[in-house]
Design a protein around this nucleic acid. Structure first.
Length: 348
DNA sequence: CACATTCA
DNA sequence: TGAATGTGG
């Protein structure tokens, strides 16, 4: 599947990086076949991690409980991501799981409206935040800060740099990282897609791991089992999502997961439903295509032998960025011992 | 996105 | 029971 630039806004590398979610598709959870797995049984596998999703997860949950000044440099640059990376990687290494971080490329123009809405929303939050700071309302400040959290260029760049020093493979998606990760998994280059996003299912990711950032065991979302469970084709599953709502469209009022599945099965596809039940989904064909045939690339190489330059990585985090916490120190120790023990090192 | 609450 | 809506993270 070649790179198709049709549906991608050329050269527009998401300048906002905002990940405020105005609408998601948690509705898909009710449809998806999900089972619990243990991290141990993933040993030896490769996980294509949706890098933005993973980072965001760390920035909004794990890291935010440490105090700001720890990861804010003298110039006011917030690099909590460095803590997240060092804290999050050991989990993979210790289970002998090789992560591959897939970064987003250009933003799809269909998402323009969405991005615009998010930016406006963010600006509003920042105004409120300023006001809350002036009033000294600490609780409100904390709440709004979590909402304005975003992946800045510095965060993306320093994350990439650090992953590079740790010899963790990186892949650059032409558009959606999620789509690229799913593609790699479908080709068999990765065993799983790692993301919290249910969209992975719509991109046809055979197996998706959720909750990779939390301490418990992950969830496994099974694509084929999901289709079989509801007797749907991939195309039909996407149509179901179009009715419920995706990142690219608002759902049709009155259609949740149950109703949507029922309708699609009854009428075959979205057009059948449109005709029979008088509903309309804007840009349906384009969005459909975005999930079924997204812009992806074969230009990637996966080096599964990880040989981190720990000295350089430590220097980067603690000296250059002056992030020196117990969490970071422990994270490095765990990385050091796990990489050696699990044989991710190439000593042959 | 998860979870709780409310409405039909 | 399922859909819609609001809140917290």
């Amino acid at each position: 599947m070649p790179v198709t630039a049709d549906s991608v806004e050329a050269g527009d590398s998401n300048p906002f990086g905002v990940l405020l979610r105005l609408m998601g598709n948690a509705d898909l959870r009710d449809i998806a076949v999900i089972k619990d797995v243990s991290f141990e049984e993933l040993g030896g596998s490769i996980v294509a991690v949706d890098a933005h999703n993973w980072l965001y997860r760390y920035l909004t949950t794990t890291v935010k409980w440490t105090s700001d000044d720890i990861y804010t440099t003298a110039d006011g640059e917030e690099v909590a991501n460095l803590v997240g990376v060092i804290q999050g990687l050991p989990k993979f290494f210790e289970a002998d799981v090789t992560p591959v971080f897939v970064f987003d490329g250009a933003v799809t123009d269909l998402k323009d409206d969405e991005v615009k809405r998010r930016r406006e929303q963010r600006e509003q939050y920042e105004e409120d935040l300023e006001a809350a700071r002036e009033e000294g309302d600490a609780i409100q400040v904390a709440r709004l800060e979590s909402r304005t959290q975003r992946l800045t260029d510095v965060i993306i760049e320093t994350t990439r740099k650090l992953l590079g020093l740790l010899d963790v493979p990186i892949v650059d998606a032409p558009a959606e990282g999620e789509a690229q990760a799913a593609y790699m998994a479908r080709r068999g280059d990765a065993d799983y897609v790692g993301t919290e996003d249910y969209d992975a299912l719509l991109f046809g990711a055979p197996y998706t791991l959720r909750q990779l950032t939390s301490s418990g065991d992950p969830e496994l979302m099974d694509f084929e089992a999901t289709l079989a469970e509801h007797d749907l084709s991939w195309e039909q599953l996407v149509d179901v999502a179009l009715l419920c709502g995706t990142d690219f469209n608002e759902g049709v009022r009155g259609y949740g997961p149950k109703t949507a599945v029922k309708a699609i099965r009854e009428h075959g596809d979205l057009w059948g439903v449109s005709e029979a039940e008088d509903v309309y989904v804007e840009n349906a064909d384009r969005i459909r295509d975005l999930f079924l045939d997204p812009a992806v690339t074969d230009e990637y190489s996966l080096e599964t032998t990880i040989e981190p330059d720990l000295a350089a990585a430590r220097a980067f985090v603690t000296d250059q960025w002056e992030v020196d916490t117990d969490e970071v120190a422990r994270g490095f120790e765990r990385i050091e011992s796990s990489v050696v023990q699990t044989g991710l090192d190439d000593w042959t």
